[in-house]
Design a protein around this nucleic acid. Structure first.
Lengths: 318, 318
DNA sequence: TCGGAGTGATCGAACGTGCCTATCGACATC
DNA sequence: GATGTCGATAGGCACGTTCGATCACTCCGA
């Protein structure tokens, strides 16, 4: 009959380790907060199920057999690991602690995270933040499949079963080549885009869809079919504009103060009604730690740079 | 209320790991040989006692939370360690396997072990032999205090509560300086030692006591009080004899075939009644693996070199 | 030689709990 | 709307862990 390790209890392992430490049934029992008969019985059962003798008892001394010593070592490992489980769990129900896999869209991540991460680490040192920069289309997939816990993206969320909390509104800025006609004005309005050739990002970026929708509304050209004119990143988009291939719309956070000097472009804000995008923190409705996400959203609203208007309304909506 | 890690069961950890692997309650339950309600309840209890959510259930998918993944990892460690306990135990009740701390007296060890250890390792590869070379006085201490499992020494055993199994009788040989008068005979008898100056080992060696007892019987000189004449090892004893400081008695195994050439000494065997010592394997009466020791004694009898006469009587006596 | 102190083993009772079968409710699919 | 799948729930049984009380043994001092 083979050994049935299933029948072993964690309590028994604790008793075995305690007895190995104390070499005395009474003291070992006391250190385990049980009575001596309990400990005796447990040790005996353990030895019986394993069919080995761990302890050599005499009326005066309790000695550990060599095999017993090896088993005690493993038992210690077992108990250590269980303790670590307890620690993980204890840490786990403090707010915003433990692992959190956060997705951020690439048109926002590089510009928001430098503002966000340092204070977040300071405020919640136990938070193990795993950041992934993924396009909206991928993000909703990963959110739905539990590969991400939450994500920062722009409305509308192209998926069902998601909860979200508003973060801020990020206005778009007009970016054209240096010397562009619109550069003569201090600000532009949406309608000014009529007839402009507006360069777009690659498929899958929400920024592309948002810009495209504005262009369609006001009658701007978008070269939609010519893939040569689709940039795979905003950096590429900048260079294409700087090279005079067209104009574009960039989210405010992505535009630095010395943008015009750095990229040889003209940057102008829009007058109201400002086009822009509404950023939210989103997560699966079924996610067990929704409170954490609400807390995180609140934190992001507080620490978003001034360029964007943090949303005051904290309500969570579908 | 703090988390009571005491309340978790190894079974629960198995279920948690299985569910993390299978992502399906039914299959996980089957892989654990329990019914699905059992597994559901166990997972729920585990999550309740730890007050964390390990699994995100929906009617179609079971997903592991990030914290859950960490806990599952630790749970795996726990189960691995328990499995190792099972392995240790399983190995443990095969004969002559696992750790065995064996003491050997220094006047025998270097000459017996080369004959003994190689076949022993081959016959019992799972035996983890830890050898210690200790004088008889120390050995009985360590045997009594469970620091050794068994020991090879000469009768009589200066301790109570020991069992032993006879191994072999090892005759003593007369060793004198080259050109010694007794060298003219092919063999000597005990009485020839009368008037000889016999050199002895240091205190604590049983060989000293045995030689001393013979010397006292036949009236040989032993310089008992002059510590300068006490050798701390048999090697020293050899050199002292070779230097003409006196004669000595050496156990047969310690004398090599080319002893006379190598050490410039004269070696002669005794005629019957041959003086010698009776070697035994000894262990605490209370030692839980006495069968192993009987087995080991039998093995030693079989593999002892021909110089000594293996005892045929296998009986264990006090 | 006797008794007291200290140790581990044993016994019977009671409570807790882990497991089972049977069933339900939610959801998806046809 | 019927069917099938999946996980949760309910009820009940049985085993095992625990405790208090007690026993058997050894050692040691009077």
């Amino acid at each position: 009959m083979p050994i049935d390790i299933t029948a072993v209890t964690l309590a028994e392992l604790r008793y075995v380790v305690a007895l190995s430490d104390q070499r005395h049934f009474g003291r070992a029992a006391k250190s385990c907060r049980v009575t001596q008969p309990t400990l005796s019985a447990a040790i005996k059962k353990f030895e019986t199920t394993l069919r080995v003798t761990l302890f050599e008892r005499s009326s005066k001394h309790v000695a550990v057999t060599p095999l017993g010593a090896q088993i005690v070592e493993e038992a210690r490992r077992v108990l250590d690991a269980t303790d670590r489980i307890g620690d993980l769990a204890a840490r786990g129900h403090r707010p915003l602690s433990g692992p959190l896999r956060l997705g951020v869209i690439p048109t926002l991540g590089p510009y928001l995270l430098p503002w966000l991460v340092p204070p977040l680490r300071e405020a919640y040192p136990d938070l193990q933040l795993v950041l992934r920069e993924v396009k909206t289309s991928v993000m909703v997939e990963e959110l739905a499949h539990s590969q991400l816990d939450a994500g920062i993206l722009a409305l509308p969320i192209p998926a069902r079963g998601m909860s979200s909390s508003p973060l801020f509104e990020e206005p778009f800025l007009f970016v054209g080549p240096s010397g562009h006609a619109l550069g003569k004005k201090t600000s532009v309005k949406e309608g000014d885009l009529e007839g402009e050739r507006v360069l777009l990002l690659d498929e899958g970026h929400c920024l592309r869809d948002q810009a495209l929708s504005i262009c369609n509304k006001v009658g701007a050209t978008t070269d939609d079919r010519e893939s040569d004119f689709r940039a795979t990143s905003m950096e590429t988009l900048r260079h294409m504009v700087g090279a005079g291939m067209g104009s574009t719309l960039l989210p405010a956070l992505a535009v630095s103060d010395d943008e015009e000097a750095r990229s040889h472009v003209t940057v102008r804000p829009f007058v109201a009604p400002q086009p822009g995008r509404r950023m939210v923190l989103a997560w699966r409705k079924t996610h067990p730690r929704a409170e954490d996400h609400a807390l995180l959203a609140e934190f992001i609203r507080k620490h978003a740079p001034d360029v964007v208007k943090s949303t005051r309304n904290h309500a969570t909506k579908k």
